[in-house]
Nucleic acid binder design. Structure first.
Lengths: 218, 218
DNA sequence: ACCCTTAAACTAGCGCTGTAAGTTTTGCCG
DNA sequence: CGGCAAAACTTACAGCGCTAGTTTAAGGGT
């Protein structure tokens, strides 16, 4: 088959179809041939638009990260902005949980991830946090969000409840976790995020706030 | 080649060699043939000892998780025990960073991960936390530790610093993160963990502590 | 109007992968 | 001492990411 009169593939179409395929069937089922078949095309044709499979995955990951809202850092105080961002970040990841294992391995060279890191860091520094501290805070929240989206604590407990009861006395109810997976994960996230922000506010009051109020400009 | 006089493979030897191979060359380089070659053997021979490749990876992950120390929950107050556990957990994972992406996808049916979850949950409940809260706390800390071991915040920034400076003004220094990766990650972890525990202590005082001190047994 | 470059599909194929099937020889147990 | 299980083997299959080379259409330059 020669070059078609109208191109059958575009980067955008490939990324959209890849996202749908990963959402529907998981990362392991995502192969270049499988994706190509979904697009009515023959495997190697994808390489006219992307250099490698990882480049496709990067594009998928980038569009997922792209919807994260960091606008709070421009309008709200740093703690409220952090909270809004963390929830938005979590929503973006849990909307496409199957791509998270790939995405979680670092921002790499994905523009949206870098833009997000930039916005968070800038917002925290602007609020008075020392640069090193701002880096740490952004990283810590990223750890927490990525971890929560990745390793849904509850998802692992799906097996025969009898097995648990015998060996792990405190986990007798663990099989029920699967039923309420979403609410457990969200509850754990909400609790952890509140605790983190509470602790950060205390640190802020102890260090930044104290210093600023002792300065003429504060 | 027939059955040898002395078996060349044991489950333990396979797991140890697999761990070393993954540590040295990463998850993508870990294939059954590659592992077999390392053991002086021919690929399919591994299937006399493990049913699938994933079963080998589960065994590796389980031994990694197995060294995590949860003994603090038996001897110390809940907050100190959580801190000790979190650090021990993090050390175990960062000692074998290449297996973390596999390990982070849930406790599955790995005994060590389940035993760990059991110990944490039990310790928190014994300290007075309501069961649902104990589940949330264990999950939240697991998110944080796994996220920190998996997606080293700093590791992603390795590219040309000029690229960052142009598009992401606040990340001008980001390339330096790679140099200090370990200290940044540890600092972020320490900050986040302290903040988390600070917030949890406040919640404990507000709920559990208040109730217990109002009871005869408290 | 024509040529030429480039684009976008194709087919063929390489060296991998996980793993199933069947073979051979050894060690051990009844 | 016969026979069965164990543990290595060889062979093979389907699928993987990706490269190379081919074909034809689209579009720009003169």
């Amino acid at each position: 088959m020669p070059r078609p009169r109208q191109p059958r593939l575009t980067r955008q179409l490939i990324v959209e179809t890849a996202t749908a395929l990963i959402d529907a069937e998981g990362l392991p089922a995502f192969s270049t041939r499988r994706l190509a078949a979904e697009l009515g095309v023959r495997g190697p044709s994808l390489y006219n638009h992307f250099a490698t499979k990882d480049e496709i995955l990067d594009a998928v990951a980038d569009t997922v990260t792209g919807v994260v809202d960091t606008s709070g850092f421009a309008s709200r105080d740093w703690a409220a902005a952090l909270r809004d961002w963390a929830w938005s970040y979590r929503r973006a990841l849990t909307a496409h949980p199957n791509i998270v294992p790939y995405l979680a391995q670092g921002p790499g060279r994905r523009p949206a991830a870098l833009a997000m890191a930039d916005a968070v860091y800038g917002g925290l520094v602007r609020a008075g946090w020392p640069p090193a501290r701002a880096t740490h805070i952004g990283a810590a929240l990223r750890y927490f969000v990525a971890g929560s989206a990745l390793g849904s604590f509850a998802r692992g407990f799906v097996e025969d409840p009898e097995l648990y009861a015998a060996h792990y006395p405190h986990l007798r109810q663990a099989h029920r976790l699967a039923e309420h997976q979403q609410s457990v994960d969200e509850g754990a996230f909400a609790l952890g995020l509140d605790a983190l922000l509470h602790g950060l506010a205390a640190e802020y009051a102890r260090t930044v706030g104290a210093v600023e109020s002792a300065l003429p400009s504060g």
